[in-house]
Amino acid sequence: MTSKDKKQLKREKFVDENGIIFLDHVSMNYPEQGAPAIDDISLRIDRGEFVFITGDSGSGKSTMIKLLLRELVCTSGNVYVNGYNTKKLRHGQIPKFRRSLGVVFQDFRLLRDRNVYENVAFAQRIIEVPSAQMRRNVPSILSMVGLAGKYKSDVRKLSGGEQQRVALARALINKPSILLADEPTGNLDPNNSWEIMNMIEEINEMGTTVVVVTHSPEIVNAMKKRVVTMRKGIIISDEQEGLYINED
C-alpha cells in the first residue's frame, strides 16, 4: 500500500468517525471587523446528508462556505472537509482538495467566453480526463440537467435557470462527495428555483452530501431537511426536518 493510499484510508476513517464535514470550535475574525464573523461554532455533517444553512445577512453563512472551500482559513479551531484539515493544506494541495467538492454559486460563475460544453468539460480538463471519456461524460451530465440539446450554446444567451444547470453540471461531473451550493436559487424565479432544488435533491438521493446556503423560507420549509440556522456568527438552531427561522 502506498503512502497516498494510507493517507486516503486515514481520511476515510476520520470521515466515518467525525463526519464528512466537521467544524471543531471554529472562529473567524476579519482584521477589518471588530466582531468575529464566526464565533466558536462546532458542526458535524455526515455522509449523504442534506443540510440547509440559513440566516440573515451577516450571520456568517458565506464565511462558512468560504471556510469549507478553503478560500479562507479559520483563525481558531479546525475545519475538516472530506477528512482534510483545511488549515493544514498547503497551497499546492488546495486544487486536489477542491476537486472532491462541487460548488454552485448564486451568480453561476460560468466561463463567459466558452459554450455550455466547454464550461462543463473544463472541470474534467483540470483532472486530465482522456478526451474520449470526456466526450461521453459531458453529454451524459448535460442530459441529466436537461441541457442535452444546448451543449453548443453560448452561456451568456441562456436563461438564469439554464445557466445554473450548467453550473450544476460542472459541479457534478467529477462525481464530488460534497455539493456546496451558495444561494443557488438567489437569482432565479420560483419555477426555476424549484427545478434546481429538485435536481439537487435527486443528486443527494444518489449519495452526494449536500450543503445549501439559502435565505429562502419557502424552499427550506417545503423540503423538510436538516436546517442549521446562524445568527451573528453562531449557530442558534440545528434541527432535522427543521423550519426557516425568521430573525423577528
Binding site: L69, E71, H91, G92, I94, P95, K96, F97, R98, R99, L101, V103, R109, L110, L111, R112, D113, F122, A123, R125, I126, I127, R170, N174
Partner: peptide
C-alpha cells in the same frame, strides 16, 4: 480575475 477565480474554485492548479 473572475475567470481565474472560477478555475481555482473548480480545482485547477496554478500551472493550469
Amino acid at each position: 480575475a473572475e475567470e481565474i477565480s472560477i478555475m481555482k474554485y473548480v480545482g485547477a492548479t496554478d500551472f493550469f
